[in-house]
Design a binder for these strands. Sequence first.
DNA 1: CGCGGTTTTGAGAATCCTCAAAACCAGTGG
DNA 2: CCACTGGTTTTGAGGATTCTCAAAACCGCG
Lengths: 248, 248
Amino acid sequence: MAVERVRKISCQQCPLRSLPAFRPFEKSELAFVNHFKRGELAVERGATLLAEGSHSAHLFTVLSGWGFRYKLLDDGRRQILNYVLPGDMIGLQGSLMGEMQHSVETLSPMLLCMFERSRLMELYRDHPGLAYDLTWIAAREERMLDENLLSIGRRSALERTAYLMAFIGSRARSVGLTGSNRVEIPITQQHVADTLGLSLVHTNKTIRKLIDLKLVQWRDGGCQILDMAQLMELAGWDGLDEGQRPLL
Amino acid sequence: MAVERVRKISCQQCPLRSLPAFRPFEKSELAFVNHFKRGELAVERGATLLAEGSHSAHLFTVLSGWGFRYKLLDDGRRQILNYVLPGDMIGLQGSLMGEMQHSVETLSPMLLCMFERSRLMELYRDHPGLAYDLTWIAAREERMLDENLLSIGRRSALERTAYLMAFIGSRARSVGLTGSNRVEIPITQQHVADTLGLSLVHTNKTIRKLIDLKLVQWRDGGCQILDMAQLMELAGWDGLDEGQRPLL
DNA sequence: CGCGGTTTTGAGAATCCTCAAAACCAGTGG
DNA sequence: CCACTGGTTTTGAGGATTCTCAAAACCGCG
């Protein structure tokens, strides 16, 4: 995984932080986060950031780029568990519990914020607000997984696909990833299939229906959302109710 | 939900705490948890402990009994997300984030430990170790959901069913729920179906195969695990690697 | 004995899968 | 500039899995 260290931008002037999706931080919190941050990391598309079974889990926050978390069965069947977008933490589970039980791979070039795992205790000791935030972040992930589970378990292929597009689309929109006013998602239909528990062929036929309905577009090796409202309607999904969230 | 308050047993002499599954607590931690605990609650089978959409989420730990978390689609389709056993927390997600996004129902009479949600900040402020534990607990739930997602998404009906039996069985065993040396699980096949994303009929036919293989038994309105190792083998599942975990 | 909840069985149908091959497309090297 | 390559999308066809509908059997309980 060709990796490149780059200079460290201070958290105080992190471009993400000004987005309305994130709650404003106190000066002291910001100072600690900045102290907690070791540096930045640039990785290319297709890199494996964290590997299942590994014990040296690092702790990151995504500054830019897309990725996904997944697990494999012994015979190679893959299940994508969730996607990671700018502002999301990676490796919290592994940092707390020791061994990684899932892998994380990039879908695009990605810029990451690396944290000093050894300072985690310091965080809990001196910054209860941030500690609370970390639990909150874990609970948010849990919530997304609950939704995904509902989707895979109980929605039809068409509903599921519509749900996934709307889900990723609205997450992307919330962090300003609206390239030329239209959300673009750098995933292949194989990723969609592995997320939804469907075969590639059937996924393709299902996506085609969404394309024919003009709800999405498939271009340049990725997906564009054309009509979020209709997708949500089709999926019977109300959207994420998130107010502001913490950004570490 | 006919509810009955009962007297408060001190956390210091909580019967669960002596199980090897739980990490020993410091005196000061125990003292705080005891202070955090408001009292106990006894509910009967079939009670709805927490309801999706509700804002008055309480925070509990299960002392005894079984339950499950679930979500519903508008038309009534139900997805069971996970089960709750003695030692598990209920309502953490809702306590932190405000609104409940799932419901919790009991599968048996249940005895609960109620916590004073207003003291959560106190916990984060004065007990970093416990704060860490709460994040850990959230991460553990996330891990279980990851597993369930993998199962529903990528395992066949037979593998899925074997996985679920082994999963619940080993969780039960880890908290000493081995009634007469054989794990007994108080769920119906409808619950299994709603957990695995299968229809009731197909679930029944799949369970029958496991019964014919003498891996499980179905008796007295519940399920008994006969051969955990074989179930794990069939599912291609390695088991929970959990060491000791916190008990709040 | 009757009742409600649960499990079981059968049968036909819909969904979704696998296999296989073609089409498409961007990037690479000749 | 074009042929080649590897990755991705598309299409067709047959088959397996899983679903729905319907009814019967079972079972503890009042």
